[in-house]
């Protein structure tokens, strides 16, 4: 296994190509399920499960699936895992299913999953595809959780389900509008930080030969 590729794949989903903040994919569940940290986390984990297994199966079958029916095949595989998540959640976590069940069904048409299937899993080995699922899923979950924490705290007057005394909660309409504002601000902040990080990495890369030369000269 190529360690550099593993590192690249992991960093891609978490930072460089974060599905929520950089690629701006899956914005519908992002806005809808980030009203609380718990819902955001559950939605992220459900999406990650579907991403990992659909990527794995699509990658395993990539040579067998004819090009002309690849999209229907991907949809069948993705919807299978979405139904599995739905069934398990309905059976073992009925309260959670009641609150985010509609959006669990909509994972089938989540752009992140279809995009990763088409652009990564269909042309990479199963293990790397699974890793891509993990990194993209983690990136999505982290992004949802960050937005969830901010929204729950500022719009709901609570943290992780616990109400903060004396902190007013917004009404439903205002809280939904506030969700868009938080999403935009978080996206701007994330991209600003990633750009800074990239610029620093580039500077370090440029400085590396100079530093080596200086080191050798000192020797």
């Amino acid at each position: 296994m190529d360690k550099a590729k593993i590192k690249d794949t992991m960093l891609d989903g978490l930072l460089r190509n974060n599905p929520t903040f950089v690629l701006v994919l899956g914005t519908c569940p992002t806005i809808a399920t980030t009203t609380s940290l718990f819902n955001a986390f559950a939605m992220g984990v459900a999406t990650m499960f579907v991403l990992i297994f659909s990527n794995l199966f699509i990658s395993l079958l990539r040579k067998a699936i004819p090009d002309r029916v690849r999209i229907p095949c991907y949809i069948v595989i993705i919807s299978t895992f979405v139904i599995i998540v739905r069934q398990v959640m309905n059976r073992f976590m009925p309260d959670l299913y009641t609150s985010i069940g509609t959006f669990i069904d909509l994972i089938v048409v989540n752009c992140i999953i279809l995009a990763r299937a088409e652009s990564y899993a269909s042309c990479n080995k199963p293990l790397y595809s699974m890793l891509d699922g993990v990194s993209m899923g983690l990136g999505f979950t982290c992004a949802l959780c960050i937005i969830g924490i901010v929204r729950e705290f500022l719009a709901g007057g609570a943290f992780a389900g616990f109400a903060i005394p004396g902190f007013p909660a917004m009404d439903a309409t205002a809280a939904n509008i506030f969700g868009f504002i938080v999403f935009g601000c978080m996206m701007a902040l994330f991209n600003f930080l990633v750009q800074k990080w990239n610029a620093r990495a580039k500077r370090a890369e440029k400085a590396l030969p100079l530093a080596r030369a200086a080191e050798e000269a000192a020797k």
Partner: peptide
């Protein structure tokens, strides 16, 4: 058509098993 049918069949069996469990 064959590949799509086989994938659908395997997915159906998998879902049947999950349904039986849940």
């Amino acid at each position: 058509i064959g590949v799509l049918a086989v994938i659908a069949l395997v997915c159906g069996v998998l879902l049947g098993a999950v349904n039986a469990l849940t």
